Amino acid sequence: MYLITVFGNLLIILAISSDSHLHTPMYFFLSNLSFVDICFMSTTIPKMLWNLQTDSKGITYEGCITQMYFYMLFAGLDDIPPTVMAYDRYVAICHPLHYMVIMSPWLCGLLVLISWMQIALYSLVHSLMVLLLSFCPVVQIPHFFCELTQVVKLASSDNFLNNIVMHFSAVLIGAGPLAGILYSYSKIVSCICKITSAQGKYKAFSTCVSHLAVVFLFYFTTLGVYLSSAASHTPHTSTVASVMYTVVTPMLNPFIYSLRNRDIKEGLKRLYLMPSIKDQLY
């Protein structure tokens, strides 16, 4: 599953970067999402595979804090691109004549830069707050990686402030992007309803299907993790639920975009045929 995720997302990045037809804001955000998915899965799965291979479940204190920081960084970044992509679809469908002016390369780069800076600061604050906590010399984490809530629960010092910051930031990072997505699609649906031709409605809606599938997959699996954690306090249930959005969701993203998106499929075909075309030319 890890190899499928890495190679699938790498293929999407290569197809977008090598095909000039895909040098548009939508695919720029998609390539960023694919890169984040690779990094997101790479923060936990290689260590887990190493533990399974060596029969060793240990991790150093420094390694745990590092893993926690990068996990929060790429998990947060996995949440931002769908919001930006929803705004991109809103501009493309509701303001098509001004699309290239509004979604300029400068704005696209700025949106990605702000996202990275915001989430990097968010991850740094949590990591520094965990460093202020005290732990026993040997601690067993009931999870397959150093998950923030699990680590904070095991602290021997007062963790009240950590819990307050965790809940506040979870609402801010989770609810904020979701509200942006819902607002963008409410405007998109309103514009599509005004289109008179059935073919025009189908074409407008089909451009959003793959993006909507990824949004629902990400948010429903994440919501399932928190609901299962609230309903059952067993570590096994929490671990199985976490696998859904740390392993399954990043793996399915390339399939959703490649199977539902004609431009991506054409780009992958051109990427596959490129070596043979070069051989014919030379």
Results as ranks from 00 to 15, higher is better:
residue 6 V to I: 15
residue 8 G to W: 00
residue 11 L to P: 03
residue 12 I to M: 14
residue 18 S to W: 06
residue 20 S to F: 07
residue 32 N to C: 15
residue 39 C to Y: 04
residue 43 T to H: 04
residue 49 L to H: 08
residue 52 L to F: 05
residue 62 E to H: 12
residue 65 I to D: 01
residue 70 F to T: 07
residue 71 Y to W: 13
residue 71 Y to V: 03
residue 80 I to P: 00
residue 84 V to W: 07
residue 85 M to N: 02
residue 86 A to R: 01
residue 88 D to Y: 05
residue 94 C to D: 04
residue 96 P to K: 09
residue 97 L to N: 12
residue 100 M to H: 10
residue 104 S to L: 08
residue 107 L to I: 14
residue 108 C to Q: 11
residue 115 S to M: 02
residue 117 M to G: 10
residue 122 Y to H: 11
residue 123 S to C: 03
residue 126 H to W: 05
residue 130 V to L: 13
residue 131 L to E: 10
residue 136 C to W: 05
residue 138 V to A: 10
residue 138 V to W: 08
residue 145 F to G: 01
residue 148 L to W: 12
residue 149 T to D: 15
residue 150 Q to W: 06
residue 151 V to P: 01
residue 153 K to Y: 15
residue 162 N to G: 06
residue 163 N to P: 04
residue 168 F to C: 11
residue 171 V to M: 08
residue 171 V to L: 14
residue 174 G to P: 03
residue 174 G to R: 02
residue 176 G to Y: 15
residue 177 P to Y: 09
residue 177 P to M: 14
residue 180 G to S: 15
residue 181 I to F: 11
residue 183 Y to A: 11
residue 185 Y to G: 01
residue 187 K to E: 15
residue 188 I to H: 06
residue 191 C to H: 09
residue 195 I to Y: 02
residue 197 S to C: 06
residue 201 K to H: 00
residue 205 F to I: 03
residue 206 S to E: 10
residue 208 C to R: 03
residue 212 L to F: 14
residue 215 V to E: 10
residue 218 F to V: 02
residue 220 F to N: 11
residue 221 T to N: 11
residue 231 A to R: 02
residue 231 A to H: 04
residue 234 T to W: 06
residue 241 A to H: 03
residue 242 S to W: 05
residue 244 M to R: 01
residue 245 Y to S: 12
residue 246 T to C: 10
residue 251 M to W: 01
residue 251 M to L: 06
residue 252 L to P: 02
residue 259 L to Q: 14
residue 262 R to Q: 14
residue 263 D to N: 12
residue 269 K to D: 08
residue 276 S to P: 01
residue 278 K to H: 05
residue 279 D to Y: 07
residue 280 Q to R: 12
